[in-house]
């Protein structure tokens, strides 16, 4: 499984990426939306994008729309530290899966395989 992780909290993104990699999941992580878009434009493909909802500049919702157009096969999970019902509804409507921060690694891994059941588990 190959994941695109985008979160402006640099330490959070790098720690989470390391923990996923230890579990056999390949991760490319970025701290802003434009870098992630550039990566996909350069021909890299991912099974799932894990996106923070609120980021400076372009947030996760807008990023998802752009990535959807570029890579229609990609699936999405939103992460957020916001806990409002509006955020929750937006997240659910946009991506089907929404995980609040702080998250449990096992919940994320379980969600990854629910979102992309076709990807074989290691």
């Amino acid at each position: 499984m190959k994941i695109l992780l985008v979160d402006d909290e640099k330490k959070f993104a790098s720690m989470l990426a390391k923990r996923l990699e230890l579990r056999g999941i390949e991760v490319d992580y970025f701290f802003d939306a434009n870098s992630a878009i550039q990566r996909v434009e350069n021909g890299n493909s991912y099974d799932i994008a894990v996106l923070d909802v609120k980021m400076p500049g372009m947030g996760g919702i807008e990023l998802r729309r752009k990535l959807c157009r570029m890579a229609p096969q990609m699936k999405f999970i939103f992460l957020t530290g916001h806990g409002s019902s509006i955020d929750y509804k937006t997240g659910v409507n946009e991506a089907s899966f929404y995980l609040p921060k702080p998250l449990k690694i096992n919940d994320l891994i379980e969600t990854l395989y629910v979102v992309a059941p076709e990807v074989p588990q290691k």
Binding site: L16, K101, L103
Partner: peptide
């Protein structure tokens, strides 16, 4: 208050992931 709680959640998320990584390293 919502923006402050968001900040605190981000901080807790980093601490949680770092502690989790230390735990992973200890396990391995």
């Amino acid at each position: 208050n919502a923006s402050i709680s968001h900040e605190l959640k981000n901080i807790m998320a980093i601490i949680s992931e770092t502690a989790g990584l230390l735990s992973d390293m200890a396990d391995m």
